[in-house]
Write a protein that binds this DNA or RNA. Structure first.
Lengths: 191, 191
DNA sequence: TTAGCTTTCCTAATATGATTAGGCAAATGC
DNA sequence: GCATTTGCCTAATCATATTAGGAAAGCTAA
């Protein structure tokens, strides 16, 4: 009875790959077990339940995404930073659709607090420092940017733009121009 | 063997109510059957498969939402219309979280074309006529507004704003102010 | 009204996925 | 080298999705 040598990491990696291939919604314990060459019940030595599988993928994705965002943001500011950060989200979603979807998986407060989620918020705030918004506008802007990025990427991922001739890249650039314009000239900006 | 008297409509309604109560992701054929007081296989006289159940809820929700949007838009224009339309989405999501989520369910091209989806796009375009944007900016703006609305509502629904003191209503108003400002003063506006 | 047709529902059965219990062998610590 | 822990397996249970086949309900028309 040779062991498969599953580790917490290899299991999570396998689940993430699977999610990208078949979609996060269809991610299943059985499928992961099959991919790892073990029987379903063997997974329970490594995870508490099927939900934890998804949580793991979500945490991995949030961290990968935060790392990529941090790298892209380094040395950039203003619109340059805005475009770079937005591009990271969009590219990650295109390359890892399952993981991107996982980022939206609802975590309980505990888990969310320990995740890379707060890093994303911080980076958004760092980005917004280039736009000089006073509080509470900065908080509003964080939410607004998060919503705009996520909304756009998720609509694009769902194929919402496929049936209109207009190029998605061009629309994306337009959206970023508009966001930059709105933040730069926002009425609440100090003098 | 008395009949339950299920119709296509009563089935869809039951499914939609269930989705609002337990969440669209957890909507299951068995649960609907239980609610209707029939056995699982009896459903297959009315639907092709479990997926169709979700599709039905999605179509119902898209239509309800489009109807509400049309009513809210009637007689309004400019920012007034923007705020009204956005409010419809947000309120519907608050009142019918399962159905709102269903609106995001991926439909195949055929089904999507016959759904109320296109009405939503048209209404967005009607709203944007008040902002006088030339093509292709109008298309870009439709996508941008759709993304912003959906992104905001879905983040709020997921509880993304619950752990920050700033009031969600105030942030929402800020976002709408910002969108209105950006569209009104957009560089691409004629003259 | 009744013979016949269609529709709606049921029971039985199968497949997949999630999960627990209990066992045995492999790795690990001394 | 032995005891302990750990990883994996088989067997079993439960929920959901789905098919096959049957029977009764309700409509249709002579």
């Amino acid at each position: 009875m040779a062991r498969a040598g599953i580790t917490s990491e290899s299991l999570t990696r396998a689940a993430a790959e699977l999610a990208d291939e078949i979609g996060f919604e269809r991610l299943t314990g059985s499928a992961v077990a099959r991919r790892l060459g073990v029987k379903d019940p063997s997974l329970y030595a490594h995870i508490r339940n099927a939900r934890e599988l998804k949580v793991r993928v979500a945490l991995l994705a949030l961290e990968e995404l935060a790392d990529a965002a941090a790298a892209a943001l380094a040395g950039r500011s203003g619109k340059d930073a805005l475009v770079a950060l937005a591009g990271v989200y969009r590219d990650y979603a295109a390359k890892h659709p399952g993981r991107y979807t996982a980022c939206r998986f609802e975590l309980d407060a505990q888990t969310a607090a320990g995740s890379a989620g707060p890093r994303h918020t911080e980076m958004m705030r760092a980005l917004l420092r280039g736009y000089d918004l006073p509080e509470p506008d900065q908080t509003d802007a964080v939410r607004f940017l998060g919503a705009a990025f996520h909304g756009y990427v998720s609509l694009e991922l769902a194929g919402g733009f496929r049936h209109t001739p207009r190029d998605a890249d061009a629309s994306w650039a337009w959206a970023l121009d508009t966001l930059d314009f709105a933040l730069r000239n926002h009425p609440s900006r100090p003098s």
